[in-house]
């Protein structure tokens, strides 16, 4: 079993799969934020990626 210390040093977390959460996939959640995101995309578009040194 992974220890808390190991868990905390990982950037990519170990995720326990729980497919009972699938019900939230189709549920309309955070709709106001999605609307805001869509408005921003329409007005501003995406950032221009800069080259990383």
């Amino acid at each position: 079993m992974i220890t808390i210390e190991e868990l905390n040093t990982r950037k990519i977390p170990i995720v326990k799969i729980d497919n009972s959460l699938k019900k939230f996939k189709e549920m309309p959640l955070f709709e106001d934020k999605i609307k805001k995101a869509n408005e921003t995309l329409k007005k501003v578009g995406l950032p221009r990626l800069e080259k990383v040194q």
Partner: peptide, 30 residues
């Protein structure tokens, strides 16, 4: 320090439980 995450298999919905003085509070990320 971070909490253990659970997710459905497409990794678009996550859940974890915040533990503190107000009790155990389940949180959802989508």
């Amino acid at each position: 320090p971070k909490y253990q995450l659970s997710a459905e298999d497409s990794l678009t919905v996550f859940e974890f439980v915040s533990i503190g003085p107000k009790g155990n509070i389940p949180k959802l990320i989508k």
